[in-house]
Design a protein around this nucleic acid. Structure first.
Lengths: 233, 233
DNA sequence: TCAAAAGTGTTCGCTATACACCCATGG
DNA sequence: CCATGGGTGTATAGCGAACACTTTTGA
């Protein structure tokens, strides 16, 4: 029975709340990082958590996640992927909340600096503190999903600048998969795949010899995808 | 404002309904099949759809999916995997319903015969009629998820009897991936992986020479999984 | 005895891996 | 001129794909 004017949405059966949460991945050139926000209210006040919020009745979960991402980073049309929905009845101490979780791949440079450094901050994967709610588990699942999907999609170009060196690309893959590749084999493999498009530009990241800059060749990738291709690694 | 005694669950903001739907895969020895139920009520009355239902407030989505599966097939503790959550605002014409979708792998033999042949029926993948709601899309995504996951997990043993011939296993993989393998190469590869455990039994499915029966060696699989292994195909 | 199905071995080519070599630059 | 980092080539091993051969069994 509803007892206040405020509770004006009524149903015959109980309904859970539904939110989206977004694990935002960035790459600093060496390590994979995630963007966390500090909770200002109870429960878990002061703890770090992923940005997220309630889904509106006229938007899909994906639209909701994109909206949250825009509000948090200023980015529009970012690359996001739904990877799991968390529905443990007790995952939120207040009420039943089901969250549809996405991960996003963004370029750290393009994220509007967390105005309030205290509110939003990038954390390297191995420096993430204990998180609010079940967000520790959400993070583990996000990383696992990212690692799986990288075998089927050339994910990761979303994390690099438009033009990048093969070394940067290798660092990224090593950070995501937590492995080490031989520099020369990685270079040769990328050339064979023909998904990298050479540019006329060079970079000089750490003195010494200049390195060619490449651009991701999306057309070539789409072509390869037709023939049922797989990134190996 | 709530206006009837019946609507006794009230919230400050609108809440969507949340359901689980379960794409139940079976294997008849040749083709991959899905179990569909015929809708008895509007909307989409008379159309086929996946079994599913509302999630209870004290159960997780996974528990809900297992419960639905048990009610529909009589199976307990079946192999299920969450693969996507569908949240288009208009996917149900009555009200906003978000569905957390699972696929299940079951042995057709163990499913209690759809008592009423008119209510539940197995359909080969290429004979599935137009489905209710957005279930056509759900099916496509389920098949895609199954095909992806088969590269990382030895899914499929859940679809075969305890003991099986290599030919049956090959038929299954061919049905799932929609490809053809050379009989002898498939046999050799399975032997090399050492995930099949020979038994003393033989089968004689279609006259002619008898075939050895194998059993899935889960221990060996777990061991391989540690070292970051991948099923190739 | 013949055909069909199952089990085994062989060959070839590709590619992942390891690693040698050369070039350019800054100190 | 040498240390560092970047670009290119080469040899080997292992695996997937194609296929020949043998064995067993029922008609």
């Amino acid at each position: 029975m509803c007892n206040t004017e405020e509770l004006k949405y009524c149903y015959k059966y109980p309904h859970p709340s539904v939110t989206t949460d977004c694990v935002i991945f960035g790459f600093d050139g060496n390590k994979l990082r995630v963007l966390l926000v500090k909770r200002g209210i109870e429960p878990y006040k002061g703890r770090w958590a992923f940005p997220g919020g309630f889904i509106k009745m006229d938007e899909s979960a994906e639209d909701g996640a994109l909206r949250e991402l825009q509000e948090e980073t200023g980015l529009t049309g970012a690359f996001i992927r739904q990877f799991h929905t968390f529905s443990d009845p007790n995952r939120d101490p207040r009420e039943r909340v089901i969250t549809i979780a996405y991960y996003a791949l963004v370029r750290m440079k393009e994220v509007k600096g967390g105005d309030d450094a205290d509110e939003a901050q990038w954390f390297a994967l191995d420096e993430v503190p204990q998180l609010a709610f079940d967000h520790d588990r959400i993070l583990r699942m996000a990383v696992r999903a990212l690692r799986q999907n990288i075998h089927f999609e050339p994910i990761g170009f979303e994390l690099l600048p438009q033009e990048f060196t093969t070394k940067e690309l290798q660092n990224l893959y090593e950070a995501i998969l937590d492995v080490h590749f031989d520099r020369r084999n990685f270079y040769n493999k990328m050339k064979r795949l023909e998904m990298l498009e050479p540019t006329d530009n060079t970079a000089n990241p750490s003195a010494k010899k200049e390195a060619f800059l490449f651009r991701f060749n999306k057309a070539k990738y789409e072509e390869l995808k037709q023939k049922g291709f797989r990134l190996e690694f």
